[in-house]
Amino acid sequence: MTDHRTEGPATAPPLLLGPSLGTSSALWDKIAPELSVTHRVVRWNLPGHGGSAADLIGPGATVADLAGLVLALADALGIDRFAYAGVSLGGAVGLHLAAYHPERVSSLAVICSSAHFNGSKPWEERAETVRREGLAALAETANSRWFTPGYTVPRLVEDHRNADPEAYAACCDALAAFDLRDRLPSITVPTLLIAGREDPATPPAHLREIADAVPGASLTEIAGASHLAPAERPEAVLAALRGHFGGYASRGMEVRRAVLGDAHVDRAQARQVPFTARVQDFISRYAWGEIWTDPTLTRRERSMITLTALVAHGHYDELALHVRAARRNGLTPEEIGAVLLQTAVYCGVPAANSALAVAQRMLAEVDAEGAEGA
């Protein structure tokens, strides 16, 4: 059986994590423990990598063979249906599973991967070189292929050096033969693509190609990330995976989009960088996933409270955003005006005057947008 590591409650929804070629399950060290709070996380190793036996595959192996090993592992663990996330070759395995075994996959995240890997020749040549010379020389170039300049994860580079050459070459054979582009439109599971903006191996265009072809798929690009984004930018990858796979962050993202609109949320996501990723995750989980989903108050009532609080603290940029949100939540312009008039009594007339100016401008923009769409 494929070597694996399991974390999290046995009764939690299962989530399988697949590695990139040359790495081990250590690729997920900064992410798996966090995901295991809400999921039964299973990290698996490629043949000849980590603790997996090298003879699980041989020359001429395919991604379908690797997907078969994952399904066998899931069966052995008593897992019928699972969420799946994978990096590079691990992501290709996820695409294959979603395309050919959709009954087993509940949702999918494909990270720094592709529906094809730039043709067969480079991988055939790499497989030949590795079978002839081993992995030592190739491991010396791992940092430039995997990370942005100046960054490294010694444990992963050592895993690359210690992988079994024959099994590694067989994985190269699988990449050489892989091309799933014609099957992408058939994928129906919820799908997230995550691209590293600095990734030379599978640049964002490769992930965009998948996102454009898979119905309903979404794409997140992570600044400052190369090919092994989960190791180099774990906070940003974690936030994206939490949003996709469920829990408060996922529910919060749905409410956030419903209240603030897709355009605003998409802009916020596009501006996200590793420095802000944890704050964005906190907002999605706490503000939108717990507070705004509490049924004690209606969204109309929450909008009135929010408008008042923003006026009280002079947060007029946020006020503009929440005037739009209030209209989405069913407040009329007259009701918004009445709320702001109330703030004149308890927050002060100057604050209310500033708020009314902001609200007047935003309501005019909303009306204009409505007229254009009519």
Rank of each mutant, 00 (worst) to 15 (best):
residue 197 R to F: 03
residue 198 E to K: 15
residue 199 D to S: 08
residue 201 A to H: 05
residue 201 A to W: 01
residue 202 T to W: 01
residue 202 T to Y: 01
residue 203 P to M: 07
residue 204 P to I: 03
residue 204 P to R: 09
residue 204 P to C: 02
residue 204 P to N: 11
residue 205 A to S: 15
residue 207 L to M: 11
residue 207 L to C: 14
residue 207 L to Q: 10
residue 207 L to E: 13
residue 208 R to D: 11
residue 209 E to C: 07
residue 209 E to S: 14
residue 209 E to F: 11
residue 209 E to D: 12
residue 210 I to E: 00
residue 210 I to M: 15
residue 211 A to P: 08
residue 211 A to T: 12
residue 211 A to E: 07
residue 212 D to Y: 12
residue 212 D to S: 13
residue 213 A to Q: 08
residue 213 A to T: 14
residue 213 A to M: 08
residue 213 A to I: 01
residue 214 V to R: 06
residue 215 P to E: 09
residue 216 G to I: 07
residue 217 A to S: 14
residue 217 A to W: 12
residue 217 A to N: 03
residue 217 A to K: 01
residue 217 A to C: 08
residue 218 S to E: 14
residue 218 S to T: 14
residue 218 S to K: 13
residue 218 S to L: 15
residue 218 S to N: 07
residue 221 E to Y: 06
residue 221 E to P: 01
residue 222 I to N: 05
residue 222 I to A: 14
residue 222 I to T: 09
residue 222 I to Y: 10
residue 223 A to Q: 10
residue 223 A to V: 13
residue 225 A to N: 04
residue 225 A to K: 03
residue 227 H to K: 12
residue 227 H to F: 08
residue 227 H to Y: 08
residue 228 L to R: 06
residue 229 A to I: 01
residue 230 P to A: 09
residue 231 A to L: 01
residue 231 A to K: 03
residue 231 A to M: 04
residue 232 E to H: 10
residue 233 R to C: 09
residue 234 P to Y: 00
residue 234 P to G: 00
residue 234 P to E: 08
residue 235 E to F: 13
residue 235 E to N: 09
residue 235 E to H: 14
residue 236 A to L: 00
residue 236 A to D: 05
residue 237 V to R: 02
residue 237 V to I: 02
residue 238 L to E: 05
residue 238 L to V: 05
residue 238 L to A: 06
residue 238 L to W: 04
residue 238 L to Y: 09
residue 238 L to D: 10
residue 239 A to S: 13
residue 239 A to R: 10
residue 240 A to L: 01
residue 240 A to F: 01
residue 242 R to W: 03
residue 242 R to Q: 13
residue 243 G to M: 09
residue 243 G to N: 09
residue 244 H to D: 01
residue 244 H to P: 09
residue 245 F to M: 12
residue 245 F to Y: 11
residue 246 G to H: 06
residue 246 G to Q: 09
residue 247 G to H: 04
residue 248 Y to I: 04
residue 248 Y to C: 12
residue 249 A to N: 11
residue 249 A to W: 06
residue 249 A to T: 00
residue 251 R to T: 12
residue 251 R to S: 11
residue 252 G to K: 03
residue 252 G to T: 01
residue 252 G to L: 05
residue 252 G to H: 02
residue 253 M to Q: 13
residue 253 M to I: 11
residue 253 M to S: 14
residue 253 M to C: 14
residue 254 E to H: 09
residue 255 V to A: 12
residue 255 V to R: 12
residue 256 R to S: 07
residue 256 R to I: 08
residue 257 R to K: 15
residue 258 A to R: 07
residue 258 A to W: 08
residue 258 A to S: 14
residue 259 V to G: 07
residue 260 L to Y: 06
residue 260 L to K: 04
residue 260 L to W: 11
residue 261 G to A: 02
residue 261 G to Y: 00
residue 261 G to E: 03
residue 261 G to F: 03
residue 261 G to Q: 02
residue 261 G to P: 02
residue 262 D to C: 11
residue 262 D to I: 07
residue 262 D to R: 11
